[in-house]
Every structure is written in structure tokens, then in C-alpha cells.
């Protein structure tokens, strides 16, 4: 092989690597991140998406125990040492329902239902109880004054008040004495393109996804088989839907 060929091969290799790198840098965020649904930290949340959760109660053999355990582990609630049972935080709980007339019985996990028009957001005097553009309802603990009006207003009793000083918290889910908290659909995971912890704990029974996207798994399933809201009479258009209730 003469020198010319060697130079040409090297040159083409460099051009190829450079072109490949440029193409990767340009296209990869769209390709890879779309796949993983992640959102860069500095990108604002928009209403293009509306996150939703569909829970098939019939497929939840434990009534949601595994989901609840995963939520506890992810957010570190439920074992506040000084609070009594009625004071201890519960972001999600298993509710057993038995119809009086028929005796039909089922259990389901109940948490923040991520209402489109959330009463907790309406009543909050500071705006700490807020709904993100993508439909996730959560509490901004930096401006929550701990008045608990949102707890009075929530029809699902989804919120808890932190009754004591907490130590050893989860870095991804800080909690604060004197503020109100509730399920935030694991917003820190969702923004990184992951599912909420409860969904990963029961992937056969829970579907998480974008309700605005007609091709998402949750939208297709809801369109085909439907999903009920708890207290649909209130017209809150919840982001959390159930099958089998």
C-alpha cells in the first residue's frame, strides 16, 4: 500500500468519524431522548403532554400493596417516628370497597387523582398547590405556608401534612415539616423519561403515559376499554383512571 492510499484512508476515516459525531450530536437528542421520553432540565414543561395513569384493579392481585411499597421507598413517607397513625403521611393507600347491596368487593390504590381543575389548586392562598402544564399536580414546598386548606378541599383525601421534623430523607423527594405533600406522579422520574415507581412495581396493571397522544398505550387502552374516575360527578377530569371499579 502506497503512502497516498494510507493518507486517503486516514482522511476518509477522519471525515467519517467527524460526520458521524456531528450527525449523532444533531440527531441523537431527538432519536434517543424521544425513545426515553426525557426532558432536559432547562426545558420548560408544556401542555403538549398530559400525563395520566390507568389502573386496572382486576389485574392488581394485591390491591396495590406493591405499588404502595414502591411509593414509600421512592419518597420515604410512612414511618414518621413521632406522628401517630392518623398523623403519619400516606401518599397512597389501599381502599377496600364493598357494595352494600350486592356485596361486590374490590380493593384499589387511591392517591392524588391529578385533576384537570383541581380544588386544591383553587383554594391554595399562595399558589403552592399547583398544576404543571403537563397535568401533574404537586406542592411547591418553598411557598407552602402549611394552612392545610388544600387538604380540606381535596375530595380524595389525597394529601398529608408533615407533622414533625424529618431526617434521612430521599434526595430526589425532599419533604418538609409543616408543609403539605401528596403523590406527584414521581415527577423527578417522569422528567427523566422513566415511569412512576408504582408503575414499575405493577407493570401489568398500571399504564402510565400521555393522554394527549392518541397513539400512546394509555390512550389506546382508554379508548378501547374505557376507564372510570372516582367521583366523576364532580367533573374534575382526573388524570388517574381506573378499570374494574
Amino acid at each position: 500500500m502506497n503512502n497516498f492510499d494510507s493518507y486517503r484512508r486516514n482522511f476518509l476515516s477522519i471525515v467519517g468519524i467527524t460526520a458521524g459525531t456531528v450527525a449523532s450530536v444533531t440527531l441523537a437528542p431527538n432519536l434517543f431522548l424521544r425513545e426515553a421520553k426525557a426532558k432536559p432540565d432547562d426545558e420548560a414543561v408544556t401542555d403538549a403532554k398530559r400525563w395520566g395513569l390507568l389502573i386496572n384493579v382486576d389485574k392488581l392481585e394485591d390491591g396495590g400493596d406493591a405499588c404502595i411499597a414502591a411509593c414509600k421507598k421512592e419518597h420515604g413517607w410512612g414511618d414518621d417516628p413521632k406522628s401517630n397513625q392518623a398523623q403519619d403521611a400516606q401518599w397512597v393507600r389501599k381502599v377496600k370497597v364493598t357494595e352494600k347491596l350486592t356485596g361486590h368487593s374490590f380493593s384499589l390504590p387511591v392517591m392524588c387523582q391529578h385533576c384537570e381543575t383541581a380544588p386544591c389548586v383553587d383554594v391554595c392562598p399562595t399558589g403552592a398547590s399547583m398544576k404543571r402544564a403537563d397535568g401533574i399536580v404537586q406542592v411547591n414546598k418553598h411557598i407552602c405556608i402549611g394552612c392545610r386548606y388544600c387538604m380540606m378541599a381535596c375530595p380524595y383525601k389525597a394529601r398529608s401534612f408533615v407533622h414533625e421534623t424529618l431526617i434521612d430523607q430521599r434526595p430526589q423527594s425532599p419533604r418538609g415539616k409543616g408543609t403539605v405533600e401528596s403523590c406527584n406522579l414521581c415527577v423527578h422520574r417522569v422528567d427523566k423519561g422513566k415511569n412512576p415507581a408504582c408503575v414499575d412495581a405493577a407493570p401489568d396493571a398500571l399504564i402510565f403515559g400521555d393522554l394527549n397522544d392518541p397513539n400512546s398505550a394509555i390512550s389506546k387502552e382508554l379508548k378501547q376499554n374505557g376507564g372510570k374516575q372516582i367521583r366523576a360527578d364532580l367533573g374534575l377530569n382526573t388524570g388517574v383512571r381506573y378499570q374494574g371499579i
Partner: peptide, 13 residues
């Protein structure tokens, strides 16, 4: 949460 039903939970439902 569920009219005409008995409900129970660890959260006072």
C-alpha cells in the same frame, strides 16, 4: 368516595 358502599383503609376511609 364510593356511595352506597362500605369502605375501609389505613387512612381513615
Amino acid at each position: 368516595l364510593f356511595p352506597n358502599a362500605e369502605v375501609s383503609s389505613s387512612f381513615g376511609d
